[in-house]
């Protein structure tokens, strides 16, 4: 297990480096001359040349890449915005908590509602509860969430006036509508996943054994089935968290929340490329960290994974010995 953890953590290094290299390389193909974007189209030829030199754009690609990687990973400096000249790290520190709050509220709602719904559907398979929850889940996946957000605004803010339609000036209250919007997809997926994994577990022999021993149905579900049935949900939790960090971008735009998403999207529209680059790398690192935690949790919760890994190792050793 220790080796697995170590290996998994070490594997983060090339991934994160790879992401930085990939994003940096992609961004060099962005249209437009950076010096001109910063100084505007009225700048003189000399000023442009001076700015280009200052930005180090005359250096060969590999030198620029190397400098950037040193800045990011050794000095922890993502550079400054071209538009405002504010350090990107400072902006991220200010904006990230908002995105994180939104993501956490969303996850809480999605899983808090999705898991019970999935369990009800699985324990009442082929009855109306099952069909109803699955229809609900199907619709939840189908509705594009930015549109749902607009509909929520129309109903809850414009018609009823209960909740603010945009911004974050009302504390946690202003996160309710965005979270309710963003949770739809994850909620539906979670319900479906819980249902199918519970159904699989309920059919297994040890559940039949438990039932034949006379364990009450409630205990069979809660004490026996849930434990194994929820393992895939844990993985889902982490990956959903990661995907949501990205998916929040559009929701943030709909509700005008000044988080990471609006930061990057505004930057794309303003051709503020260092922000796009820095923001993306930052999000990717956060995402990879989430995945790392998920993998470790998964191995800790499910002894089969651990056994599998150790089994694999043994096989390798045998093979080597045979060779």
């Amino acid at each position: 297990m220790g080796r697995y953890v170590l290996k998994r953590i070490l594997w983060m290094i090339p991934i994160v480096l790879g992401v930085a290299i990939l994003v940096f390389t992609l961004m060099t193909f962005c249209p437009g001359n950076p010096a001109e974007i910063i100084l505007g189209s009225t700048a003189t030829e000399e000023a442009l040349a001076a700015k280009t030199e200052e930005l180090g754009l005359n250096d060969p690609f590999l030198v620029r890449l190397g400098n950037y990687l040193v800045d990011v990973f050794i000095r922890h400096d993502l550079g400054a915005s071209w538009a405002t000249n504010v350090s990107i790290m400072t902006s991220i520190k200010e904006r990230l908590p908002r995105t994180l709050t939104l993501t956490l509220v969303t996850l809480f709602l999605a899983f808090g509602l999705g898991i019970p719904l999935g369990i009800v559907a699985a324990t009442h398979q082929n009855r109306w509860q099952d069909s109803l929850s699955m229809v609900f889940a199907l619709i939840g996946v189908a509705i594009p969430n930015f549109w749902l957000g607009l509909m929520f605004v129309l109903f809850f803010s414009v018609r009823l006036g209960w909740l603010p339609s945009m911004g974050i000036n009302d504390g946690l209250k202003s996160y309710i509508l965005p979270a309710a919007t963003a949770m739809m997809g994850a909620f539906a997926t979670c319900a479906r996943q819980t249902r199918s994994s519970m159904l699989e577990v309920i059919r297994s022999d040890y559940i039949t054994t438990a039932r034949s021993k006379g364990v009450p149905e409630r205990d069979v579900i809660v004490k026996h089935a849930l434990k194994n049935g929820l393992i895939p949900i844990i993985t889902m939790f982490g990956s959903t968290f990661g995907h949501m960090l990205g998916g929040m971008m559009i929701i943030e735009t709909v509700f005008a929340i000044p988080g990471m998403g609006t930061y990057i999207i505004t930057a794309v529209n303003n051709r503020d490329y260092p922000v796009v680059q820095g923001g993306t790398i930052f999000l990717a690192i956060t995402f990879s960290l989430c995945m790392l935690i998920v993998d470790l949790l998964y191995a800790a919760v499910d002894p089969r994974i651990k056994a599998q890994y150790e089994g694999q190792n043994r096989k390798k050793v045998k093979k080597e010995a045979a060779a």
């Binding site: 990939l22 992609l26 990661g242 995907h243 990205g246 971008m249 995402f287 990879s288």
Partner: peptide, 11 residues
């Protein structure tokens, strides 16, 4: 390792 939507936006 780059979340899907972020990748789309970069692209």
């Amino acid at each position: 390792a780059i979340p899907g939507m972020v990748m789309m936006i970069v692209m």
